[in-house]
Design a protein around this nucleic acid. Structure first.
Length: 426
RNA sequence: GGAGGGGUGGCCGAGUGGUCGAAGGCGCGCGCUUGGAGAGCGCGUGUACGCUUGCGUACCGUGGGUUCGAAUCCCACCCCCUCCGCCA
């Protein structure tokens, strides 16, 4: 949600930011409603002021045992004015909300211009690409040959975009999860958290999924939304709160299932485990002091990268262009892992600084130290550390051998009961 | 599913029609005290919006209503908790 006061004072910058997102100017129409809203508000306030004064006089008169009919009639005249004014005020306020709530966050200054992924900028490349002296297979061929990845069975029970993992690969998913969580908690200080996977409207609104992206989410008959990412519950842990400055930063990590309808992705990535309705992810969320959120984004991105480095996986980091960023983000780094089976880099983590955009929606603030009055909105950040399913894909494709077996990265072996290789009938 | 209780400021907790933005406590801030810290004492301390530099308005879960006037009375809704039943 945008700050209407800021828009008043920076209308041009606001429209310029929207333009970078590929959106039409909105300041003029918003400010027009805003002006009418404030006029109505002032009118109501003046009327209420008079009503309150006269009411006090009535109370005083009655206290003295005097009649007050004239005064009562006077207030009666104000009632309609107040009632209608309040109605108008509410209507205009809702109109402003309707205009603002579908608008995405404005890009940070250092975000590259451009409306899609072709304008993303590569920031760095890390790690050696693996070489193979045989024909590489993708994770589907590898997993099915091992008899540990079963899309047919998944389709039988759940339909398309689901998978059943078995034996070594089921264990690999669990091992990767624990590996990631241990690093994020023990080395980087993220507080391990186990949040609900079902949330209410208010939470989905707070992080920006609602009202605009309802069709991307699964929801239940009784009004819950299945989380598309642990960002939703983790970030909303501070919804409606006023924190102490010393509480910041709050760094949390959670392993959850994530549910996405993939409504707009029909026919995209239909093969394999890349794009599923349900997948697991270790997520990082930071509630940060606004003065330090930029640094925090760099830190968070590093925390994701180090997982890949420990696993010996090659990757690159790109900064997303204005138009490719998610709704709530003001700056986003995507980390893309090298997938030999696809001969390309694919997104495995996305780390975003949302500034105060979500905090406004959530009313999440802190009290600046040394000041007894006033609050500031916190900044919120989220990032994958990492998407577990895609990490599993990366391990399979990067560590495959010609005989169909897969070497387990050394750092992961303690999490795999000491095993060094995954092979068929293992 | 059945029965009951409850939502008040950063937190706890008073308050059943005007003098209530709201007692008291905790926390926080400043000061005194101290070698320093703590304790103690004193003063201060809600949020947001509008107009203006001092006022005004709103907010006691949300939305309506009654009333000259509502935290307080009425209606609807939302949420939380307890007990019983059922269940992972």
């Amino acid at each position: 949600m945008h700050d209407i006061k800021w828009i008043r004072e920076n209308a041009e910058a606001f429209d310029a930011g929207l333009a970078r997102r590929g959106l039409d100017a909105a300041a003029a129409s918003v400010l027009d409603v805003d002006a009418r809203y404030r006029a109505a508000q002032t009118q109501v306030q003046v009327a209420k002021n008079r009503r309150n004064q006269v009411s006090k006089e009535i109370g005083a008169a009655k206290g003295r045992g005097e009649g007050a009919d004239g005064l009562v009639a006077k207030v009666g005249e104000l009632k309609d004015l107040i009632r209608n004014g309040e109605q108008e005020e509410r209507r205009l306020s809702a109109e402003i909300e309707e205009l603002l709530s579908p608008l995405p966050n404005l890009p940070a200054d250092d975000v590259p211009d451009g409306l899609d992924e072709t304008a993303n900028l590569e920031v760095r490349r890390v790690g050696q690409l693996p070489r193979f002296d045989f024909n590489v297979r993708d994770h589907v061929d590898i997993g099915e040959a091992l008899d540990m990845m079963d899309f047919e069975s998944a389709a039988r029970i759940s339909g398309a975009r689901f998978v059943v993992l078995k034996d070594g690969l089921a264990r690999l998913e669990r091992g990767l999860t624990n590996f990631m969580l241990d690093i994020q908690t023990e080395e980087f200080g993220y507080q391990e958290t186990k949040p609900p996977s079902l949330v209410r409207d208010a939470a989905a609104y707070g992080t920006g999924q609602l009202p605009k992206f309802a069709e991307d989410l699964f929801h239940t008959d009784d009004g819950y939304w299945l989380i598309p990412t642990a960002e939703v519950p983790l970030t909303n842990l501070v919804r409606g709160r006023i924190l102490a400055e010393d509480d910041l930063p709050i760094r949390r990590t959670a392993y959850t299932s994530c549910y996405r309808s993939e409504a707009g992705a029909a026919g995209k990535d239909t093969r394999g485990m890349i794009r599923q309705h349900e997948f697991t992810k270790v997520e990082m969320v930071t509630i940060a002091h606004p003065d330090y959120s930029d640094d925090e984004l760099e830190f968070m991105t590093k925390c994701a990268e180090i997982i890949l480095q420990r696993l010996g996986l090659a990757y690159r980091v790109v900064v997303l262009s204005c138009g490719d960023m998610g709704f709530s983000a003001r700056k986003t780094y995507d980390i893309e892992v090298w997938l030999p089976g696809q001969d390309t880099y694919r997104e495995i983590s996305s780390c975003s600084n949302c500034g105060d955009f979500q905090a406004r929606r959530m009313q999440a603030r802190f009290r600046p130290k040394g000041e007894s009055k006033g609050t500031r909105f916190v900044h919120t950040l989220n990032g994958s550390g990492l998407a577990v399913g895609r990490t599993l894909i990366a391990v399979l494709e990067n560590y495959q051998r010609s005989d169909g077996s897969v070497v387990i990265p050394e750092a992961l072996r303690p999490y795999m009961g000491g095993r060094e290789v995954i092979r068929a009938a293992d």
